[in-house]
Amino acid sequence: MGILHMQPAREDRLLVTETLQGNQLSFQLLIERYQDRLFGLVRHYTKSAVEIEDIVQDTFIKAYRKLESFQHQSSFSTWIYRITVNTALDFLKRSGRNPVQSVEDPEMLGSTADGPNASGAGHLAAPDANLQREEIAQITQHVLAELPEIFRTVLVLREFEDLSYQEMAEVLSISIGTVESRLFRARARFKDALLRLYPEYGQTE
């Protein structure tokens, strides 16, 4: 059976096995399968194309060095996402751009308490129909950049990478309950920040 006819997970497993056997081309194929997704993920942490490329490159080199420890208990995609997020956060931390280092732990704050009216900042309107997709993307990215990294990461993994709660828990090495809690607060923070930065999108009652 050719590799192109396999399920993605089986393809990944085969490519990993062949890479461990010394097949450089298999590792190259593995990189090609994930490189664009990882470039898309890392762009949420830095806007510099050079830095994005460095982070993704470092991610794959780390993955190669740790490949023997990959036990296939999770999918390769979850595993490579975890390395990517950790590499990106490490990069931000070392470059002094990790917001979590300069503010109190956002999860300890009660400012966005649980409950139906958690944010307390009014209702958010849907994007204007006249807005171009590029404009919506620009606003969303601006608001995301305002969030502490801990909240930005869960929103990116959920809303852009479409990871399940289980996959997010594996990527972030946290429990599913923590994923739910963090995601809930992240959404409230996103809504608050959007209404603060773009009050014109607040919905008038």
Binding site: G40, I52, H123, L124, A125, P127, I136, A137, T140, R187
Partner: peptide, 20 residues
């Protein structure tokens, strides 16, 4: 509110310009 918020993310597709 959840559906409205989702529309902000749905309307912000991945930036196709940033590829490997």
């Amino acid at each position: 509110d959840g559906r409205v918020l989702r529309r902000w993310f749905d309307g912000a597709p991945g930036e196709s310009g940033i590829l490997a």
